[in-house]
Design a protein around this nucleic acid. Structure first.
Lengths: 114, 114
DNA sequence: TCATTATATAACTATTCACTTATATGTTCA
DNA sequence: TGAACATATAAGTGAATAGTTATATAATGA
């Protein structure tokens, strides 16, 4: 769930959320395409609960949406987020994470449900 | 002093710094014009050490610069900051703080050294 | 020089935060 | 139905953070 905030609170809350390297990188990745939790665990070299907890914060703030496909849950940037304009501008300053996805492909760890 | 960081670290550090409502508002104010510590204490209705500590963080990151005038030290946004482009874009999303400065004027608490 | 004013710093405290481990929930498939 | 896999949640822990109080430093002016 997300809460109604005034502009100042909303902006500072968004910056606080994205002032974490993991979440900021996640947004850059998930802007380009959806990823499931286990892919993010591999990319960030961290535990599954850690990834889930970051995703929950992003989801509670309305920044990402989830899309279950069978046993996997794919996350992606929510284009209807009220903060979308700000977020687009922020993410533009984050270095591309394409290499991370290529790495996943190479290792054969990319999950596909198509 | 400010430290050399890669792009990702630099961006996330900046967002973390400005993910605080007080510091974010300070940047909005100090972008328009310089303010001294005692003015900011009045505006933010908080203690002098609290204001000084926020300013120090902003200064350590290179986001603001100081300018002593007699017993007062005036702070303003540092236009030579390496993160300047990002910061300009962020600040544009913060509501105007002009009313705060007008309030100061009304109360006769504006410090002027001209 | 001394009192006053402005600011910085230090030490402490309460809260927040990210991460870990353990466990629960949900889905698939044999 | 039950084992295996994917994800979420709960509880605990240590580090970071913002604020407080107390004190130090610095500038002014009588």
């Amino acid at each position: 769930m997300s809460f109604a905030l005034n502009d100042l609170d909303e902006v500072s809350q968004t910056l606080k959320l994205l002032g974490d390297k993991t979440r900021l990188t996640m947004m850059k990745l998930l802007e380009k395409q959806e990823c499931c939790v286990c892919e993010l665990v591999e990319i960030f070299k961290t535990s599954q609960p850690s990834v889930s907890q970051h995703l929950r914060k992003l989801k509670d703030a309305g920044l990402v949406k989830e899309n279950r496909k069978g046993q996997w849950i794919f996350y992606s940037v929510n284009p209807n987020c009220t903060q979308n304009e700000l977020i687009q501008k922020l993410i533009a300053f984050v270095p591309s994470q394409d290499h991370e996805l290529e790495e996943l492909d190479k290792k054969g760890l990319r999950i596909s449900c198509d």
